[in-house]
Nucleic acid binder design. Sequence first.
DNA 1: CTGCTCGTGTCAGCTTTCTGACACGAATCA
DNA 2: TGATTCGTGTCAGAAAGCTGACACGAGCAG
Lengths: 149, 149
Amino acid sequence: MSQDGVGVDLETSLGYLLKEASSTLRAAMEEVLRPLGMSVTHYSCLELLAQRPGLSNSELARGAFVTRQTMNVLLQTLEREGHVTRPAEAPVGKVLPTRLTPRGRRKLEKATAAVRSVEIRMLAGMTETERSGAFRILQSMIHSLRDGS
Amino acid sequence: MSQDGVGVDLETSLGYLLKEASSTLRAAMEEVLRPLGMSVTHYSCLELLAQRPGLSNSELARGAFVTRQTMNVLLQTLEREGHVTRPAEAPVGKVLPTRLTPRGRRKLEKATAAVRSVEIRMLAGMTETERSGAFRILQSMIHSLRDGS
DNA sequence: CTGCTCGTGTCAGCTTTCTGACACGAATCA
DNA sequence: TGATTCGTGTCAGAAAGCTGACACGAGCAG
């Protein structure tokens, strides 16, 4: 009916729905992060560092789904604000391992709580089975997309 | 193990996985669209217009998950290139209904085929049951996030 | 050891997207 | 009727992100 033969059909497209879900999630995160003066990328970077201390600029970029150039300017800001530290010289090669300062860790705590509340809201009404099913399916999509490139 | 008590844990977070899936999908679409000289937003706009002719600038913006200002500059480009037409004056109110030109429709055809191949690849290895399950779960997430704002 | 490839950090410039603001028309309500 | 609210199109400026490019160090093949 809404399909005229060969199109993608937005109403039934999983790709479109995936984009919609991601966009809605991002908007919800921005909403709770804004009062804290943080953006989503900002938060992603700090959360990454909390869970995997010593990550390099490039590794952080991959984890936050931005380019290393973008992450670099973000790190400069975070460093200037005292939320993050990088050694002046690379211990090995050119890689500069980054770490959270106590101040950065405090800043992150509030943000984590806010973001967690969003994620809990997103998962409301889903059973544990549905959640693990969603997890498996999303991983399958990612894997399939990466294979045939 | 990777969780120290109160964090979000990137390894098991559905939100993070959702972002990763969306990012991977976008990259895959950009890859197949680039040879055609189109961006994802570009394509989204044309696809929207093909399926729902006469959409206004603001409606297109919502459908493509960008602001109406962003969509406006995109429409100006598309209009200049002759892919799209808007009346010089609004038939009613300020709303300018937009339509695809034959040229725009031709341009879209190739893009749709490319994007569809990506979506098919993404869905490879999933059963019909899994696909409809994924659809239902994503809709549930969107609905839950929109409720408690 | 030499040459090559790969990943990295960083500079510069550009494109895309966003926020803020304004005027206008339609719809609603007192 | 008049006032208010809402959605819209659009202009301007700022912010965020990307591509291209360069030099450098590590790792591997010859």
